[in-house]
Design a protein around this nucleic acid. Structure first.
Length: 440
RNA sequence: CGGGACGUAGCACAGCCUGGUAGUGCGCCUGCUUCGGGAGCAGGAGGCCGGAGGUUCGAAUCCUCUCGUCCCGACCA
């Protein structure tokens, strides 16, 4: 994109409402604008990040054997009355009434709806197990939205639901999702630690929160270094193989990990001191098994091999996609701005034309832009160099290609790596190949 | 949901106590100079002071109501 023709309004000063780093940077870098408390419009650069994250989540869900669906944002109250949650959910649920006085709601989650969809069509044990997911906007009318996109009222979430014939099958689905999550977070360029979470009335061990490490995270976390050493790749764990999943699950659950609320000093003492890791974290995902809670309440039963009706065992698996945008920034920024991981950056590279209007400089920039196109943001504004440097650092492109009149005259550009600050002078061709574009 | 603040130009804020022609910095526009880390000078545009009522000769300023936003705490992807 050409910056001069883009709705990417960077800000030099910070709007008063933004307190935490990610919120300030998201506003300053022109990723989002607030529309109402906890409700944001995603501008071009922000939307690209959101889509990049969603794509990675999607790829890993598909690889785990989950199938993508898309359920609506608006749901009929009747479904929730069946499960009893219409009354239980409280004021967090945004309730709506249509012109026919029918009660509707803006979905905060989708257990009821997915259960309804399955009960309509799935009759036999031969059709299970299955996992379905969707990436959809949710609404929870938080009393106090804050931290920008990290705790908004409207948020984009990937939620998956598993259906199995028995507990053993549900465990396999659970582990499969857990592995998919670890791979997802790895690809997103963050360290994530699974932590045992409250299972509430369901009981059991099958509920985990995924905390990604960020210096400004909301809770203190303690964990064994073992989590940082696991090889989550397909070479090590075949996600389709239950034995591999069992081995994976064991490594995830035998090592110590807890947030400050659940920190167990006795157990912590047993972790060898050189392996103790402490940090702060942000919750970005949650998976849990809840048995037949919804299948029983909503009368979803399939015929088993023995002819008996059985309520499938269910689990649900969420990743806060929009929250992840904020969390990634919390995990990766400095004084000057955002430092995007390559995998999610809105633009792989920023092209900085330091002398707009200079024939040679313009020509070199156009060549670069012609090769990079959609993966680059070309700063073609008639701004001074300092402004362009500052904005490029703010926006956090992994690479900056700095084109000045002196270098341009001899075919040289400067390539800067945002994460390290390292700069090198090289030819246009070499710059392109370093970035990973080879058709120069 | 308890507690506390704040709404004045696109952004950050002053003015309000003590009513009397709405200001500053940044940003924006024009010109000249400058030109590799948020330039300088000169000129200019931009406000129903969140909204509604009230008090007053006169309200950004005082009073009442209302809407919105933020912060702390309890709660959540």
């Amino acid at each position: 994109m050409r910056l001069s023709r883009s709705l990417i309004p960077t800000l030099k000063e910070v709007p008063a409402e933004a307190q935490i780093a990610s919120h300030r940077l998201m506003l300053r870098a022109g990723l989002v604008r607030q529309t109402a408390a906890g409700i944001y419009a995603w501008l071009p650069a922000g939307l690209r990040v959101l889509n990049n994250i969603a794509d990675i989540v999607r790829t890993e869900q598909d690889a785990a054997g989950a199938q993508e669906v898309l359920m609506p944002t608006i749901q009929p109250a009747t479904l929730w009355q069946e499960s009893g949650r219409y009354e239980d959910y409280g004021r967090e649920m945004l309730r709506i009434r249509d012109r026919h006085e029918r009660d509707l709601l803006y979905g905060p989650t989708n257990e009821e709806m997915i259960t309804d969809l399955y009960r309509q069509s799935i009759r036999s044990y031969k059709e299970l197990p299955q996992i379905a997911y969707h990436i959809q906007w949710k609404f929870r009318d938080e009393v106090r939205p804050r931290f920008g996109v990290m705790r908004g009222r409207e948020f984009l979430m990937k939620d998956a639901y598993s259906f199995d014939m028995d507990y053993a099958g549900a465990v396999v689905s659970y582990r499969r999702m857990m592995l998919a999550y670890m791979r997802t977070f790895q690809r997103l360029g963050v360290k994530a630690i699974p932590m045992v979470a409250d299972t509430g009335p369901i009981g059991g061990e099958l509920s985990h929160e995924f905390i990604i490490l960020a210096p400004t995270g909301e809770s203190q976390v303690f964990y064994d270094a073992a989590f940082e050493e696991v090889d989550y790749s397909a070479a090590n764990f075949d996600i389709a193989n239950p034995d591999d999943l069992a081995r994976f699950f064991e490594t995830m659950t035998t090592h110590y990990a807890a947030t400050d609320e659940k920190h167990d000093l006795e157990a912590w003492d047993k972790v060898s001191p050189d392996r103790r890791r402490e940090g702060r974290g942000i919750e970005v995902g949650h998976i849990f098994y809840f048995g037949t809670k919804y299948s029983a309440a909503m009368n979803f039963a399939v015929t088993g091999a023995d002819g008996q009706k059985i309520n499938p065992e269910m689990g649900s698996y969420g990743i806060g996609v929009s929250r992840m945008v904020g969390a990634l920034i919390e995990a990766s920024h400095d004084e000057a701005g955002i430092i995007w991981p390559d995998s999610v950056a809105p633009f792989k590279a920023g092209i900085l034309n330091l002398k707009q209007g200079d024939a040679t400089t313009d020509a070199v920039c156009e060549t670069l832009y012609g090769n990079l196109r959609a993966v680059a943001l070309y700063d073609d504004r008639s701004e001074r160099a300092g402004v362009k440097f500052a904005d490029a650092d703010l926006m956090g492109h992994p690479w900056q290609i700095v084109v000045g009149p002196r270098g341009a005259a001899s075919g040289q550009v400067e390539l800067k790596r945002r994460a390290t600050g390292e700069r090198v002078e090289l030819s246009v061709e070499d710059a392109l190949s370093r970035i990973g574009v080879t058709n120069a």
